[in-house]
Each structure stands twice: as structure tokens, then as C-alpha cells.
């Protein structure tokens, strides 16, 4: 899979490159700032971009802004944003244009190599991967939304959906059967007034509701 990495720490850039190359990814370019990232995407047209949030020159949210540019100009490119801290506000920005093919994870997650690579593949395949920390941050902000109608368990399931897990993954995490998960999910769809006809897209819509409820700015 053709990948472009943007990360300003030399150590981590080299580490990520090594990790990806030993596990069957093709690293087309590894750059150290947002401008370099945009140039590399233009040139290599990768399937996947991995970007750090804090990069020169201001070391605030360069990575998020560059990711949004990539989303607009090359919507087919999947993006995984990594950061030392995750912030729900940045997640909301990132998901404001579309909720497919996008991930936002703590850098810590790189340590669990298998799970990280799986997240990368999922995002590249058009899925999402939101860090549990982001989901936790979004959960503290619910205010009088349809989400208030959900039970605690349903909220938990929705949170795991937002992280990008499949039904099987959610069942494993909550130690319940997959059919129980499916039941919860259907209940969530009903409570959020999502029509039954749209199939898999409803998952995305539910997650989007979840995110919207957290940040009125989206």
C-alpha cells in the first residue's frame, strides 16, 4: 500500500518507516512538515497518509489543517492522524468534511503494532479509527441531544462504533455475543431516528450524530 508519512521527529519518522516497510506497506515519502506533505501527496498520489498533528512552524494543529486540505483536494486518499494528545475539537475538524477513510489516534497506539496496522488498513479501506480517548472526551460533552435517550450500554456500543470497530470487535471488547451487539445497534439506530434502508451507511450516520452532539461547530 503506497503511503506518505509526515512526522517532524526524526526518530519517529524513521521508526514508522521501518515499521511500515517491514509489514508490507510501501513508504513513498517521509516528510517533516505540512507543506512537504501536500507536495508529496500531489506527487505520489498515495492510498494512505499518516500525519502528525504538531509540526513546524507553529507546532499546534498543522497536521489537522494539512489533512483537511488533502481531504478536499484528493478525497480518495485515506488519512491517519497521529498525536501525542488527542483532542475532540481536532477530531471534529477532521470529521467535518467526511467520516470515511479517516483515523485519529494517540501515538501510543503505535506500540501495539498489530492493532495499529489493522487500524491503518481499516482506514485505508474507507473505515474510521477514533482513539478511545477522543470518544471519552466526546462522551463528557453530551447535552440534551437524542443521545441522551440511549442507555449506558448503548452509548458504550456507539463509542466503540466511533472508534471504528466491527460488530465482532465490539462483542469481543464488551464480552457479549455478536447478536447482542446487533440488537444494541438496532436500538441505537431507532433512537437516533436513522431509517433502516441505508445499510452500512447508518453506522457512519450514527457516529456522525455522536460527533455532532459533542461539537455544535461541526
Amino acid at each position: 500500500m503506497r503511503t506518505v508519512i509526515a512526522e517532524d521527529s526524526v526518530l519517529l519518522r524513521a521508526g514508522l518507516t521501518k515499521l511500515l516497510e517491514t509489514t508490507g506497506f510501501e513508504v513513498a515519502a517521509a516528510v517533516d512538515d505540512a507543506a512537504g506533505l501536500l507536495a508529496a501527496v500531489e506527487r505520489h498520489r498515495p492510498e494512505l497518509v499518516i500525519a502528525d498533528v504538531r509540526m513546524p512552524p507553529t507546532f499546534t494543529d498543522e497536521g489537522i489543517r494539512a489533512a483537511l486540505v488533502v481531504r478536499r483536494q484528493w478525497p480518495e486518499v485515506a488519512i491517519m492522524v497521529l498525536s501525542q494528545y488527542v483532542e475532540e475539537r481536532y477530531a471534529a475538524d477532521l470529521l467535518s468534511t467526511s467520516t470515511t477513510g479517516v483515523g485519529y489516534l494517540l501515538k501510543d497506539r503505535v506500540a501495539d503494532v498489530d492493532v495499529f496496522l489493522e487500524s491503518l488498513r481499516r482506514v485505508a479501506a474507507g473505515g474510521t479509527a477514533l482513539d478511545p480517548e477522543v470518544v471519552a472526551q466526546l462522551l463528557v460533552r453530551r447535552q440534551n441531544t437524542p443521545l441522551d435517550r440511549l442507555t449506558g450500554r448503548e452509548r458504550e456500543v456507539l463509542g466503540l462504533m466511533a472508534e471504528g470497530r466491527s460488530n465482532a470487535g465490539i462483542a469481543e471488547k464488551l464480552v457479549v455475543s455478536e447478536s447482542a451487539v446487533a440488537k444494541h445497534i438496532n436500538s441505537i439506530f431507532a433512537k437516533l431516528d436513522l431509517p433502516a434502508s441505508e445499510g452500512d451507511h447508518r453506522r457512519v450516520l450514527a457516529v456522525l450524530r455522536f460527533l455532532e452532539s459533542a461539537s455544535p461547530s461541526v
Binding site: 526518530l11 521508526g15 501525542q84 501515538k107 501510543d108 506500540a111 503494532v113 495499529f116
Partner: peptide
């Protein structure tokens, strides 16, 4: 991060 990644 790099250390944890290498160990992983």
C-alpha cells in the same frame, strides 16, 4: 513512543 514501537 519509538521505544514502545520497537518493543511492540
Amino acid at each position: 513512543v519509538s521505544l514502545a514501537m520497537n518493543l511492540g
